[in-house]
Design a protein around this nucleic acid. Structure first.
Lengths: 106, 106
DNA sequence: TTGACATGAAACCAAAAGGTTTTATATAAT
DNA sequence: ATTATATAAAACCTTTTGGTTTCATGTCAA
């Protein structure tokens, strides 16, 4: 009933720039690992590990298709981030309002 | 002109749960280090390091006041996160719409 | 001016993260 | 059947991270 209890945290999953780039690539379209890793200077194995972390955070999912495995984006867990952010939004809105006020006073 | 060029990444800064909790505490009100660290089972020095990372990401700022240093929230860098997120929002909106469609078809 | 307090800085440590290379396994193509 | 391809898994390595303890410094209070 509680939280999703993912093995990997969304916050931690998106902390790495390589993983964010992987997400971006998968947002464009689903791809097999080899195609993904072609975009990076590191080994396919390293990318495979990143994909495992992303999939443990439920941000991507992979399905076997013949001898390859096609990965695709699973964006739902990002709602958790959005909720976290929304708590802080009012703070920076206040800040911006104050700034606006100051500017208009001039 | 370009990006803020912070020493620490916002994504990386919020990856750690302790640092997120520090942010939450500072969202309530500004506090000196000792008061912050009283909320955690770890040493004051450890919290001090977390605060340094947060301030290098421009998420908090500290000002000396007598012999203590008062830290307060600086939420602006979170806009970067929000922008990053907004790119993905349409994806999960689509997903939810599709789900809604399926449910309504039943 | 001496002592207590708040923080900063340095040295150190263990575990985790991000890589690599090597080995294994399943599927496709010849 | 045999070979090539796509990925997974394991073993290993180095750097970073999150923590500790110890030492130094600045400020307030007696």
């Amino acid at each position: 009933m509680g939280a999703p209890a993912r093995k990997h945290d969304v916050f931690q999953a998106i902390a790495d720039p390589t993983r964010r780039e992987v997400l971006r690539l998968l947002a464009e379209k689903e791809r097999p690992i080899s195609e993904i890793s072609a975009h990076f200077p590191i080994s396919r194995t390293a990318i495979s590990k990143h994909l495992r972390i992303l999939s443990e955070a439920d941000l991507v999912k992979g399905e076997k298709a013949g001898r390859e495995r096609i990965y695709y984006l699973q964006p739902e867990p990002l709602t958790e981030l959005k909720e976290w952010l929304s708590f802080y939004e009012r703070f920076w809105n206040n800040k911006l309002q104050k700034l606006k006020y100051i500017v208009e006073e001039e």
